[in-house]
Design a protein around this nucleic acid. Structure first.
Lengths: 197, 197
DNA sequence: TTAGAAACTGACTGATCAATCAGTCAAATT
DNA sequence: AATTTGACTGATTGATCAGTCAGTTTCTAA
C-alpha cells in the first residue's frame, strides 16, 4: 500500500473519531508513520485531504449499495425494503468510521463552498434514498406495498434507519434493541391491507 | 440584561452556527460588545461556557415541553401523539439554534468526560422521549393506539421526528414537504385496527 | 551506470488561539 | 471621606496549528 493510500485511510478514521478541526496533521503523520511534509506532498491542503476522504467514502458506499442491489432481486418489494434496512444497518456497523464522518457537520458546511464536496454528499444520499425508492416501487408493482408517494416514503424510511444509526453513535440509548421494532414499524407503514374488491 | 447573560445568548448562537472549535472567544467578545477578558471573568474557561450554554438549553427546552404537556390533555392518545410531533417540529423551528447545537457532536464528546454536560443531555433526551411515551400510554388506555412497547415505540417516533429536523438542517432535501407524510406514517404505526370481537 | 524525476523529510514560519493578569473605575460599605 | 468590592478591560503570553521549503533518498529509464 502506498503512503498516499495509508494517509487517506488513517485520516478517515482520525477525522471520523475526532472531527476535522481536532484532527491535526502532526498527529496524522505520526500515526501513519510518515513525515509531516509527506501529507502536503500528496494533498495540497488539509481541506483537499478531506475532499479526497469524502470521495473515497462515496466510491466505497455507492459500490457497496450497487453490489447489494444487483445481488438481491428475487423477493417481493416489501421483503426487499426489509433487506435494504438490514443491509443499511449492517453497513453502518461494518463501515462505522465512514458513517460517523457522514454524521458530522463539517462535510455539510464545506459543501456550501466546495463543489466537489457537495457532489460527493449528493451522490451518497441519492444512492441511499434511491435504493429505498426502488424497493418501494417494486413493492407497488407486485402488490405488496400500498399506494404512497415512493420518493417521499423512501425519504421517511431513510430518516428512520439513519436516525437509529445515529442514536447508536450518541450512546444515549441502546439502539440495537430497536432494530426489530423498527422493521415492524416500517412494515406497518408500507404493507398493503388485504384487498376487499 | 447583564453582560453575563448577553455573552451566554450570543455564544449559543455562535456555537450553534460555527461549532465549538470554530467559535473564538475573540469573535464572541466582539459581537457581544465586551472585552475579551470579560468572558473569562464570568466563565472560567471556554469549556465551562459551553456547559453553561447546554444547561440553559436544557432549562428552556424542558420548561417548554412541560408547559405543552400541562396545557394539552383533552384529546385521545393518538391525537396527542400528533400534537407532540407538531409541537416538536414547531419548537425545532422556533428554537433553531438550540436544536442545531444539540445536533452537533461536541456536546456528546464532552459528555464522555464532563458530568454536568452528560446530565444536561440526558435530561433533554429523556424529556423528549418521555413526552412521546406518555402520549402512547394514554392512547393505549383510551383504545386509540395498538398494543406495542410504549418506550421502544416512543424512541422510534423520536428518531423519525428528529431525523426530519436534521434533514432540514443539512439542506439536502426539502424536509418541510414531508411533515404531513410523517404524521400519516406515524398514524399507521400506532393506530389500533377496528376491533373484531 | 547514471542523470533526472519523484517521493519523502523535518526544521521552520507566521498566524491564531485560549487564557492570564495588572490595572481602571464606579458603586457599595464603613 | 476613606476603603473595599466586583465588574470590566485589553495587551501580553505561550502553545498549537497548517503549510513551506531546502535538502535527502529512492526509483526509473536510457
Amino acid at each position: 500500500m502506498t503512503k498516499r493510500t495509508q494517509i487517506l485511510e488513517v485520516a478517515t478514521r482520525l477525522v471520523a473519531l475526532k472531527g476535522f478541526k481536532d484532527s491535526t496533521m502532526k498527529e496524522l503523520a505520526k500515526i501513519t508513520g510518515v513525515a509531516h511534509g509527506t501529507i502536503f506532498y500528496h494533498y495540497k491542503s488539509k481541506e483537499d485531504l478531506f475532499v479526497s476522504i469524502l470521495e473515497e467514502i462515496k466510491n466505497e458506499l455507492v459500490q457497496g449499495f450497487n453490489d447489494f442491489l444487483s445481488a438481491k432481486q428475487a423477493d417481493s418489494g416489501l421483503e426487499m425494503v426489509e433487506d435494504v434496512v438490514r443491509f443499511y444497518l449492517n453497513m453502518a456497523g461494518v463501515k462505522e468510521d465512514q458513517f460517523l464522518l457522514l454524521h458530522r457537520h463539517y462535510a455539510y458546511e464545506l459543501a456550501k463552498t466546495n463543489t466537489a464536496c457537495r457532489k460527493s454528499l449528493e451522490s451518497i444520499y441519492d444512492c441511499f434514498v434511491d435504493i429505498f425508492e426502488k424497493a418501494i416501487l417494486k413493492g407497488q408493482q407486485d402488490g405488496s406495498i400500498m399506494d404512497v408517494s415512493a420518493r417521499k416514503t423512501a425519504l421517511i424510511l431513510f430518516t428512520m434507519v439513519d436516525g437509529l444509526v445515529r442514536l447508536n453513535t450518541y450512546n444515549l440509548y441502546d439502539a440495537g434493541a430497536l432494530y426489530e421494532d423498527l422493521i415492524l414499524s416500517i412494515n406497518k407503514i408500507l404493507k398493503k391491507p388485504k384487498s376487499v374488491t
